[in-house]
């Protein structure tokens, strides 16, 4: 018989209305993966939960098991990413990140590494603000982690060695393809030599090392287009937060 009350760290990735003053939260936790829980009275002024369970907050929570949904009884902020919340572009980037996590994960599947990736990404975004690099690095490692690792070695179409020339990225093949394989593929996106290099490099390096790569506007656009097409292909839908991200041009910067 599991205990009725338990404690966990969590990042609030989604918040929906639930009755008048309650909120239904979608949380990402290190030990339980994605879970949903109720924050009672969270929106009343003076609520002890209040800002501690606000969207995009990393908190220590006490929860009581409920019949359907667990109920948050206490909350203490660990990090609220305040620099991120004061910046419109970074807010739109984090909406995109949390929508990705929400779309790609099922409830109650433990994934410590994915939790760390999410936390590091939000921290990186708050402190470094290089949104283009941070978003792409996040996408590559999210996909890798969930079994959609982009294949960047040989051509995923014919298996030949990729030449140091303009190749393609094919969502349906899940990786880089040569000219002959990429040309007839309508979903394939052009992948320059530099773009392929950056993808390969980021795939195997840590976050801090990834930051050493400086992207110009063209390269940034190319990487974005390749990753977006791939994600859209896997999820079979366009993410809702993308339009706003584009409107603010948030991921063009740097």
């Amino acid at each position: 018989m599991p205990s009725r009350v338990y404690q966990t760290e969590a990042i609030v990735i989604k918040r929906n209305k639930f009755g008048e003053a309650d909120r239904l939260l979608t949380l990402y936790t290190p030990g339980f993966g994605k879970i949903r829980a109720i924050a009672k009275g969270a929106m009343r002024p003076g609520s002890k939960l209040g800002g501690n369970v606000e969207l995009l907050t990393y908190s220590l929570l006490m929860l009581a098991r409920g019949r359907n949904l667990d109920i948050i009884t206490q909350a203490q902020t660990i990090d609220n990413f305040i620099e991120l919340k004061d910046n419109l572009e970074l807010i739109s980037c984090s909406f995109y990140i949390t929508e990705l996590i929400d779309s790609f994960t099922e409830e109650n599947v433990e994934d410590q590494a994915l939790f760390s990736l999410l936390l590091n990404t939000l921290r990186d975004l708050s402190t470094n603000k290089e949104s283009a690099r941070i978003l792409r690095y996040f996408e590559i490692h999210l996909l890798d982690h969930l079994g959609y690792r982009p294949q960047l070695g040989k051509c995923t179409g014919c298996g030949r060695q990729l030449q140091p020339e303009v190749n393609y990225f094919s969502p349906s093949h899940g990786g880089a393809v040569c000219r002959e394989c990429g040309y007839p593929d309508i979903n394939a996106r052009i992948l320059s030599v530099n773009a392929l290099k950056v993808l390969r490099y980021w795939q195997q390096c840590d976050n801090a090392t990834a930051a050493k790569v400086k992207l110009n506007h063209e390269l940034s656009k190319e990487l974005k287009s390749a990753m977006r097409e791939y994600i859209k292909y896997i999820l079979e839908k366009q993410l809702k937060s993308i339009d706003w991200l584009d409107e603010l041009n948030a991921d063009y910067r740097k």
């Binding site: 002024p45 003076g46 002890k48 209040g50 800002g51 501690n52 606000e54 907050t57 902020t77 609220n80 305040i82 919340k85």
Partner: peptide, 16 residues
């Protein structure tokens, strides 16, 4: 801070 609230329970963003 909300009137009738409690400093101890205020979150960091509200306090700052």
């Amino acid at each position: 801070l909300p009137f009738g609230g409690d400093l101890e329970y205020a979150d960091d963003i509200t306090l700052s």
